[in-house]
Write a protein that binds this DNA or RNA. Structure first.
Lengths: 316, 316
DNA sequence: TTGAAAGCGCTAACAA
DNA sequence: TTGTTAGCGCTTTCAA
């Protein structure tokens, strides 16, 4: 316990000298340095980081906004962010929004209040203009395609990835292709629709399954797919978790993969390999690492697209 | 911008009155209150939370130590913690340790430095005595069986759960039972060995597979299981992810589940249902919620065991 | 190389 | 109901 002044008194120096020693500043004589160190030791001194933050005006902390911490997509991004934060001696503050705007605003306010130096938004609900307004308070990194000059971005080109997947299926003779999305008005959902239309000119609405984020959703979609009069012969699925649920339920219902329906997933989650899911590998861990770097580099705004690769297995 | 004194000046009151208004204290006249509010509005005032933290001596922030943020076991606990934190207006600081002691110490130090008011340790590497020493700086919650008077705990009784699972298999005629663990010297590994010995009096070392945490590990273990001269006819597996890898790889190798080998997993992760995995349901989300409540109740140390239930499916 | 002094911005006990 | 004052504990400029 005790503070910097107690040390100063005990060591017979001023508080500023103590501060210098504690922060490894040069220009402190060896004797005084040692006296300070001894006194600190003797008093079991621990610095109060809040005072440091107040005084310095920054916290070496980055906030992370994500809808669900325990979803593999966001969890993997978070893991990358956490690894990079550790390397750079930064702390991480997380806010799980469950896609709730108010939660997101709460997180944005952490930056206003100087609780965090920067903010990484893995998925956004608020209008982009509103988010941009907050960039005066600290650095904001978006994990979505964006090219403005106030906020950095790192993202996967969903349009390109989706188009490549569709083309892959089309090349293998599929013309009846369905797909799943998380939410109809989501950003990547729109990109996917555009990609679809560019290949097939027309999207059959009953072949688009929304609300697909989890394994359970995949199971449900399989049931819905089965009931269709005209079933797609191939499905592009939000992520490998949903694909896993879909495939396992299809099998349970007596269908063959890829015989009755071919499947392409996204992420290349570890579950994809043993299930033989053909998938689009997304470097999510890497994306998280990049996002962190951008977050701590407020002066240089960059926009980085991370590459994806198709991983061929047995589901197509 | 601007601070509390600027508001005070503009509103023609003292800083303390401003503070009172901003914190909804009673005993402020309506006129002065309004004047302060107007001034704050006009100056686009934002409070500096670091000053508040310094002044109050607490941060309304809880730290969470976990080995891997994107592992379903820890991710689900974290999700429960995050939900409870949100409800109580607390922030969360996470530290991903990857089972590295230094990372854990780093996290413990956050409490020394008054960066967090409390700490939830979902998995521990440091000696318990060392962790306990930190409890003078704030509240510590352990997610493991523990009954000391300085730290709260919330946990699953691994011994009991494991014993029940073994008994379940034994009752169905299995006498050659293997199992997987994360690390040989882990706390739950020891509990499991004890449970095993209580039922069978003897543990055959080649039937214990360590380093089993992920889907890939499950795949690997299936290969190892196959190579055994004397193969267990049943396996108790660390968690449903590992079980998924194990089952899928066994099938790929031409074995039947449960014909050639029965499987029980842990967690009741969403993947368990479509794969038909018999599993021990662990209320991890709930565990996280309880841990949070304990973390913000430093005065009452409690020890709570959360119940598990066996979920019967087709893998046994 | 060192210290004094002025912050950083907010809270709260006390007195009025 | 309000203001004064003394912190909370550290950093940093300036002058010596």
């Amino acid at each position: 316990m005790g503070n910097i002044h107690d040390i100063a008194r005990l060591a017979g120096v001023s508080a500023s000298t103590v501060s210098r020693v504690l922060n490894n500043h040069p220009y402190v004589s060896t004797e005084k340095r040692q006296a300070v160190l001894d006194a600190a030791e003797q008093l079991h001194y621990e610095k109060n980081i809040n005072a440091v933050h107040l005084s310095r005006g920054k916290t070496e902390t980055i906030g992370v906004i994500l809808p669900y911490v325990n979803h593999p997509y966001f969890g993997t991004i978070l893991s990358g962010i956490a690894a990079a934060a550790e390397e750079n001696g930064f702390k991480l503050m997380i806010v799980q929004t469950k896609y709730d705007v108010n939660q997101e605003i709460d997180a944005l306010n952490m930056m206003k209040l100087k609780q965090v130096d920067g903010l990484i938004i893995t998925s956004r609900e608020c209008p982009i203009e509103m988010v941009e307004d907050y960039s005066t308070y600290g650095s904001i990194v978006l994990c979505e395609a964006w090219t403005g000059s106030q906020m950095s971005s790192v993202y996967i080109n969903h349009f390109k990835a989706f188009k490549e997947a569709i083309t892959f299926l089309k090349d293998r003779g599929h013309s009846k292709i369905g797909y799943t999305i998380v939410r109809v008005d989501g950003k990547s959902s729109i990109a996917r629709r555009n990609a679809y239309e560019e290949v097939f000119h027309y999207v059959r609405d009953e072949w688009v399954f929304d609300n697909s984020l989890t394994i359970e959703d995949g199971v449900r979609v399989a049931g819905e797919w089965k009931e269709l009069e005209k079933r797609p012969t191939a499905m592009l699925i939000t992520n490998d978790f949903v694909a896993a649920g879909f495939i396992l339920e299809c099998r349970r219902l007596g269908f063959q993969i890829p015989g009755d329906v071919a499947v392409i997933g996204f992420d290349n989650h570890p579950i994809a390999a043993p299930l033989g899911i053909t998938t689009i590998d997304l470097p999510l861990q890497r994306l998280g690492e990049i996002a962190f770097q951008q977050a701590i580099s407020p002066t240089e705004i960059t926009h980085q697209e991370v590459p994806f690769t198709i991983v061929k297995r047995e589901s197509v």
